[in-house]
Amino acid sequence: MANIKEKIYHVLKGNFLVSNDSFKNWRFILFLVMLMMLMIASSHSSDKKVMEIAKLSKKIKELRSEFVDTRSISMKLKLESTIRNKVFDLELKPSEEPPQVIRVTVKK
Rank of each mutant, 00 (worst) to 15 (best):
I53A: 06
N15I: 01
M37S: 14
V18G: 01
L90E: 11
E96N: 04
S46Y: 02
T82I: 11
G14S: 04
F28W: 11
S42A: 15
F23K: 09
P98K: 14
L32C: 14
P99K: 07
M51P: 00
E97D: 10
G14P: 03
F31K: 15
R71S: 14
K58W: 09
V87K: 01
I73V: 14
D21N: 05
W26I: 02
K55G: 00
W26D: 01
S74L: 14
S43K: 08
S95A: 15
N25R: 05
F23L: 12
R84C: 00
N3D: 09
S65A: 08
I73C: 05
V104I: 14
K58C: 08
S65C: 01
I4K: 11
K108R: 09
L35D: 09
A2F: 09
V106Y: 04
V50C: 00
L90D: 12
M1C: 07
I40H: 07
D21Y: 03
D69K: 14
L92N: 03
V33T: 12
K7P: 00
A54G: 10
S74I: 12
E66G: 05
I83Y: 12
V11M: 13
I8W: 10
V104S: 05
R27P: 01
N85W: 05
V68L: 03
K108P: 02
E62H: 04
L38K: 06
K107H: 06
L38R: 03
I29C: 03
V33R: 11
K78R: 07
S42C: 11
S22K: 00
I83W: 13
K78G: 02
L92F: 07
S42T: 10
S95D: 11
P94G: 06
L63D: 09
A54Y: 08
L30V: 05
L63G: 03
F31R: 15
K93N: 07
F88K: 14
R64V: 13
S57M: 00
F88T: 11
D69I: 12
T82W: 12
S22A: 04
L12T: 04
N85D: 06
K59W: 02
K58L: 14
M51S: 02
S81M: 03
V11F: 13
S57R: 01
L30C: 03
M36G: 06
L12A: 02
E97K: 11
N20W: 04
K5M: 15
P99T: 05
L90P: 06
K7Q: 11
K48S: 15
N25C: 06
K48G: 10
W26M: 03
E80Q: 15
L35V: 15
S22Y: 00
M1A: 10
A54H: 09
A2T: 06
S22T: 00
K58V: 08
M75W: 12
E62A: 04
S45N: 11
S42R: 11
L17Y: 02
K48M: 13
L63H: 12
I53C: 02
K61M: 03
K24C: 04
D69S: 13
T82R: 12
K48C: 13
R64I: 09
K13M: 01
I40Y: 09
F31C: 14
F67V: 11
D89A: 13
I60V: 15
I73M: 12
T105I: 09
N3R: 13
